[in-house]
Design a protein around this nucleic acid. Structure first.
Lengths: 328, 328
DNA sequence: CTGTTAGCGCATTCAA
DNA sequence: TTGAATGCGCTAACAG
């Protein structure tokens, strides 16, 4: 009672009256030597049979799968659907498909991959910071990994945001507007990326003579921003810098509960990531972000390089810049 | 200058001093007849060699890939990161990996799939409405398709939201609160799902004697909601029903520009989808949604069925319910 | 330009 | 319990 078995290349070849090799060449994307006559017959045969090449077999034969893996902690790591949408479109545009892997907090990534195809993808884009470069390198082939989680490693190529640049601009903006004191709301401080970010804020604040009143540890989420906002001394604080837009949104809403203003007037509020939500009227939060198109372009460029080139292990830096909105 | 070639099962077998068959069994997930002694040697050999099974080869041999495809129009089709996050986690929990395919508006899905592994996945979850069931069925094996885009088809299993139920509750809520006139903001009206949704609203409104002042055609987006809001006659309209939360958010923000109120007092506002954003203070929009856990559970249940069972082509209906918030 | 041959890496017969 | 042999579907190398 099995449904009709999938037609194979042999079936096509047989119907067209040619050898399997000819059929293979006629159906190949690259130009291969085949007489126009036979190519035509093969194509017609494939059409009538409803033939669809088995990519597993093809991959096994020529050792390419046209598959890239994207590793994230949680989906929210992407922090921005627009980025993901663009990334997916561009990756597909170069003829590759994306296998999406979510590596939950405590769980071991390796067990997820054990029985999946992910081990043998052309490349792995690592957004997740579940592991350092060494672990990822062990999981995948060395030159197949692209670190996008802010972690650097001499042996592995990476595309990283130059967050320091945007933070400088952001703090400079606050200083120019007369801010003298500030509060910093941070994310998970065990993250290397977050540590670097915090260091940038500290340095920039010091450079401008802005006093850092304190650092409150959140977890990037709206809820944590909302909760921590209770600790803000509205009268003494000139600016609140958050290392995520979501936390800034939480701060904004918490503030509105006490002061029915659209935007805080006592202190300035700055977020981070420039997520698309900050374009909505309700959350006009000044933020820091990079040009998504350039970011994605850099990723795709590396993906397009033959593996030997990737050995150079590019450490690409993408600029970030301050984006001014109502709260800043 | 090629990097170390991946060790294969043969390498493991050789190092362990056994045949390939024994090595294969020892490494199999299912219990297979192997003496404890040899199993031990094989496992150790695999460990020292850093052996990782090639899933392409395995898939070719036993005709299963443990891969499911998720088809979307744009990422935003998911309208809800939480749903996607949960779905991905559950699919991975049953040992499958997800290949993500974005089928752009005008582009042909088939060309995307031509050279990808997607043709031979275990199943395809279709969120995109780029094509009817017939097209999807042609692209994938019949019983491997699960329609989640609201389209029904006798030959293909589906999990669909029972939107009519939620809409009834929603309109009943408005009627109970004395609403006598209403405006409907719709999405892309060529969509079959949207047409059904509109029909539900019309019927429910008529049933409660609420006069439908008009239907304004948007595209589900925040921007379209914002623009269409200009046409709302605040004095004559008792309630505004939107077929997406994003449009309701746009309406809310447009209204706030003229009336500095957190929530409209002249008319009631209802959205659709119950996206997580409506839990944020800024957008306390009453909405209609289903239990994500149940929705995902139903999908995974069907995914777990052997192919022959799916022949039954379940047409599962998941309940939706009204979720009351400040605007309703 | 064509067809034959030989693998890709693995799981599974079938004898032993 | 074991191992030799066979095949999954396709492409590449080689001869013609």
């Amino acid at each position: 009672m099995k449904s009709a078995p999938e037609p194979t290349l042999s079936d096509v070849a047989a119907l067209a009256g040619v050898s399997r090799a000819i059929a293979s060449r006629a159906l190949s994307a690259q130009p291969r030597p085949v007489s126009a006559d036979k190519r035509e017959r093969v194509l017609r045969a494939a059409e009538t049979l409803g033939f669809r090449p088995n990519s597993l077999a093809r991959g096994l034969a020529n050792k390419t799968v046209n598959l890239v893996a994207i590793l994230v902690n949680h989906i929210h790591d992407l922090s921005d659907l627009d980025l993901f949408d663009l990334l997916l479109a561009e990756i597909q545009a170069i003829g590759k498909q994306v296998i999406f892997i979510r590596v939950g907090a405590g769980e071991h990534a390796e067990s997820f991959l054990r029985d999946g195809v992910a081990y043998h993808v052309d490349a792995a884009l690592v957004f997740s910071d579940f592991a350092d470069a060494a672990t990822v390198r062990r999981m995948f082939r060395n030159n197949a990994v692209l670190m996008l989680n802010g972690h650097h490693d001499p042996g592995v190529p990476s595309v990283t945001m130059d967050e320091d640049q945007g933070i400088r601009e952001c703090v400079a903006d606050a200083a120019a507007k007369g801010v003298r004191t500030a509060l910093l709301l941070t994310g998970r401080t065990m993250s290397l990326v977050e540590q670097a970010r915090i260091a940038s804020y500290r340095a920039a604040l010091a450079r401008h003579g802005i006093k850092l009143l304190g650092e409150l540890a959140g977890d990037y989420s709206y809820a944590s921003g909302r909760a921590l906002a209770q600790q803000i001394d509205v009268d003494a604080t000139g600016a609140v810098f958050c290392t995520s837009d979501a936390m800034a949104m939480g701060v904004l809403d918490a503030h509105r509960q006490h002061f029915p203003q659209h935007v805080p007037t006592r202190f300035r509020l700055y977020g981070f990531d420039n997520i698309s939500l900050t374009q909505f009227d309700a959350y006009p939060i000044s933020s820091i972000g990079s040009d998504r198109r350039e970011y994605v372009a850099q990723i795709v460029r590396i993906l397009n390089q033959p593996a030997d080139l990737a050995q150079n292990s590019d450490q690409v830096l993408v600029a970030t810049r301050f984006v001014s909105r109502l709260t800043g």
